[in-house]
Design a protein around this nucleic acid. Structure first.
Lengths: 154, 154
DNA sequence: TTATATGCAAACTGTTTGCACGTAG
DNA sequence: CTACGTGCAAACAGTTTGCATATAA
């Protein structure tokens, strides 16, 4: 496991080439994230990195996650985490049939996607999970946001 | 569109048979949700229903969504909305390759799911979206939570 | 040296809770 | 009549922001 050093260097380069300084906090946060298989929340990450940097503040974790997302070094697991979204599930009423979702990563709009092929998907390696539903989430830009991004300052 | 009356009745029956009273607030909230294609948030729903019931409180909307989820009449679009979750995305480091997710609906654990077949998925009817990624999210119970649910009060 | 990052505390947003009153069954 | 639901206000949790200080380059 000496490949880790390479990764650190690669991360440092990536930051510099994108105009971000390489602080030890930033480095530690990224290392903790990259070596975790937990898809951690900001708080989990904060706790983990505090073992090495006790003075680390939670605000710094948030600011770094934001900065690293902006340069593409970190990604949200989930584009819809800012507020709960609901749908009717009473069989036969509203959205009560199996379906998938189109999600606009910009305005967070969600549209239903009905596709019998996708309904047939099966997961090969469930890692012991008892799977209840397999949902496809297609992420991209909705028509409105595409139009907006052609003329960014409209 | 006189089928709506049937749906209302069906919803009322469903509530009663699950021990929930049928209040006009509850009915209006469900109708608004079932007739929306927006996968609305609690606040959007609140605003929408307030046009008919101006005194409706946001707390009531939340309590109803909770109650209706408990009897299976409403579903979360997204099992991970309580906090942001992150992953490293630097190409080649950590989770920086295309992959999918196993999500435990009980403890919210997320595991990576690598499957070349799933990577090949294409969406048939993108409804004008410019799709950047197609992610499969398999939802179920993780091994730990399965064990727990065998002995509920351990 | 100087632009950027950090830590702290205060502000905000989305959600939950406790309790007095109201209403469905 | 009585249990369940509602509305209000206060409490909470997660996240963001402003500002003085510290640090990378």
């Amino acid at each position: 496991m000496k490949k880790q050093k390479d990764d650190v260097e690669r991360f440092a380069q990536y930051c510099r080439s994108h105009g971000l300084s390489v602080t030890h906090q930033r480095l530690a946060i990224f290392e903790a994230l990259a070596s975790s298989r937990e898809h951690p929340s900001a708080e989990q990450l904060h706790k983990a990195v505090q073992r090495r940097i006790p003075a680390l503040s939670l605000a710094t974790v948030y600011k770094n996650l934001e900065a690293l997302k902006a340069i593409g070094a970190v990604a949200d697991v989930n584009p819809l985490h800012e507020q709960g979204r609901y749908e009717a599930a009473l069989p036969g009423v509203g959205a009560g049939r199996p379906h998938h979702h189109l999600v606009c990563v910009s305005c967070k709009k969600v549209r239903d996607l009905h596709d019998a092929d996708l309904d047939r998907l099966r997961v090969r390696d469930a890692q012991g999970f008892d799977i209840r539903a397999v949902r496809v989430q297609a992420e991209g830009l909705c028509p409105d946001c595409q139009a907006r991004s052609v003329r960014p300052r409209a």
